[in-house]
């Protein structure tokens, strides 16, 4: 499934929904591109991107190569500090010292929500799997429960990335509990008949 097809799938999602996006790593940038194109460019929303997977700088570089407009994208970067690397100052990036500081992630999202003048926002959480490396399922459930309810009440579109094959039964149960729905992005070979996903939207 390519970026325009993903965007088409996401088009009808109502505001205030929290959707788990199950996908293979191959679809990573297609999903980001589709989401930013649909919500930031076409729907004119600010995007808050919480990354604990790869540093914001790497995502920004990749998006710039893909010629994706990043003016409305604001990052909460929970990985760069932990890598002890140099972090560049930007109005579009806020750093959280560690992915274990879940309250600080909530606070930074709250700050960006408050700062944004646009009515609706889209929030991408990348990803449940990398957050689970640093946190146990109990505290992660509590984090998602509070954060998602807060964002829902503000009518944000929420996408939580879940990399296929990198989760656990506990993690899947937790996401079923806290999210409203699940959307699976099939990998390329599955669409060609080699897999069994078929691009269907999975509901709970």
């Amino acid at each position: 499934m390519n970026a325009p097809e993903i965007a088409k799938k996401l088009e009808d999602i109502p505001p205030g929904s929290a959707i788990t996006i199950d996908m293979k790593i191959d679809s990573y940038f297609d999903f980001i591109r589709a989401t930013l194109d649909l919500f930031a460019t076409r729907k004119d929303l600010d995007c808050i991107y919480v990354t604990s997977t790869i540093p914001s700088e790497s995502i920004l570089n990749a998006l710039s190569v893909l010629e994706v407009d990043i003016d409305r994208v604001y990052f909460v970067d929970c990985i760069s500090h932990s890598m002890m690397g140099k972090t560049s100052q930007s109005d579009h990036v806020i750093f959280v010292e560690s992915a274990t500081m879940l309250e600080n992630i909530m606070l930074k999202v709250q700050y960006l929500m408050k700062k944004s003048k646009r009515e609706n926002k889209v929030v991408i959480i990348d990803s449940v799997n990398t957050l689970a490396i640093h946190n146990n399922t109990k505290i992660l459930s509590e984090f998602f429960h509070i954060l998602l309810n807060n964002l829902r009440s503000k009518d944000a579109y929420i996408f939580i990335l879940n990399m296929e094959g990198q989760g656990s039964e506990d993690l899947d149960s937790m996401m079923n509990l806290v999210a409203d729905d699940k959307f699976r992005i099939p990998a390329g070979q599955e669409e060609n008949g080699d897999g069994n996903g078929g691009g269907e939207e999975a509901s709970e």
Binding site: L107, Q110, N136, E142, I146
Partner: peptide
Amino acid sequence: YVLDLTPSGVLLVPLLKGG
């Protein structure tokens, strides 16, 4: 609660207990 001092003022979220 956990707080953050930001240009938008003090922000607060509940302290997570993690079970």
